[in-house]
Simulated scan of single mutants.
Amino acid sequence: MREDTEAALKTFEVNTFGRAGILSKLEEKLAADEAVIYIAPTNATVTTTASRKTEKLPGAIALTSKRVLFTYKVLLDHKTISVDLAQVHSVTSSGNSLTGGHIQILTVVNTIDFLVKYKKESIAAIQEAFEAAIAGAKAPQGAGSPDVLAQIQKLAELHTAGVLTETEFSEKKAELLGRL
């Protein structure tokens, strides 16, 4: 498993029990220059905007420094929805500690509504990570952008090593993503 994937799983306290295979399939779709910000096995409802066709699918979702990916298995085929961050219109969240949480990503082509942990703090942190990455993708790219990604990777290493707390890591990562 990639280091940034492990760091994202740890940061957001994602349980992968019995779902490591789908995460591996998702990792195969990632480019080497993409930094994983959030990744989790999940169930999602995907609605195609033009036809209003809705499908409920088990799979895995990832937020990277460049795009959102949702991969799922239909019969024997693995399929992936990939959306460039600049193409995401909005991200909303809902839920509470009783009914669970949802993050909804609205794009030109699809709406992806996926399940997340039950804690309100977790739901808010995931939404903030998506919003920061999307804002970074839509902002004009400066000369320092590659340096920011390198700093995020270094932060992930420090967090994994136990030097940074989860809160410190999340706050600094969000700040750096805002600079992209």
Rank of each mutant, 00 (worst) to 15 (best):
E3D: 14
T5I: 11
E6W: 13
A7P: 00
A8P: 09
L9T: 03
L9H: 01
E13Y: 00
V14A: 04
N15T: 13
F17K: 14
F17R: 07
G18M: 04
G18Q: 04
G18Y: 11
R19T: 06
A20G: 05
L23T: 04
E27A: 02
E28G: 04
E28P: 05
E28A: 09
A32F: 10
A35V: 14
Y38L: 06
I39C: 02
A40C: 02
P41Y: 00
T42D: 08
N43A: 13
A44G: 13
A44K: 14
A44F: 15
T45G: 04
T47Y: 09
S51F: 05
R52D: 12
R52I: 11
R52M: 12
K53C: 05
T54N: 10
T54M: 09
T54I: 01
K56H: 11
K56E: 05
P58R: 01
A60S: 04
I61A: 01
A62M: 03
A62T: 06
A62D: 01
A62Q: 00
L63F: 12
V68M: 09
F70T: 03
K73W: 15
L76V: 08
D77A: 14
K79N: 11
I81P: 13
S82D: 12
V83I: 01
V83N: 00
D84M: 10
D84W: 10
A86P: 15
Q87Y: 11
V88E: 14
V88W: 08
H89Y: 15
S90R: 13
S90A: 11
S97I: 14
H102I: 03
I103P: 13
I105D: 01
L106D: 15
T107V: 04
N110P: 13
I112R: 04
I112E: 00
F114K: 12
L115N: 11
L115Q: 10
V116I: 04
Y118E: 09
Y118V: 01
E121P: 01
E121C: 02
S122V: 03
A124H: 11
E128N: 01
A129E: 07
F130I: 02
F130E: 03
A132L: 05
I134G: 09
A135C: 09
A139V: 05
A139Q: 10
P140T: 15
Q141F: 00
G142L: 14
A143T: 11
A143P: 15
G144L: 08
S145M: 13
V148P: 14
A150E: 12
Q151P: 06
I152G: 03
Q153G: 10
L155A: 03
A156L: 00
A156E: 04
A156S: 07
L158Y: 05
H159K: 06
A161W: 04
G162V: 08
E166I: 14
T167N: 12
E168F: 11
E171Y: 11
K172T: 11
K172A: 15
K173G: 06
A174E: 13
A174Q: 12
A174K: 08
E175H: 08
L176E: 12
R179S: 05
R179A: 07
R179F: 08
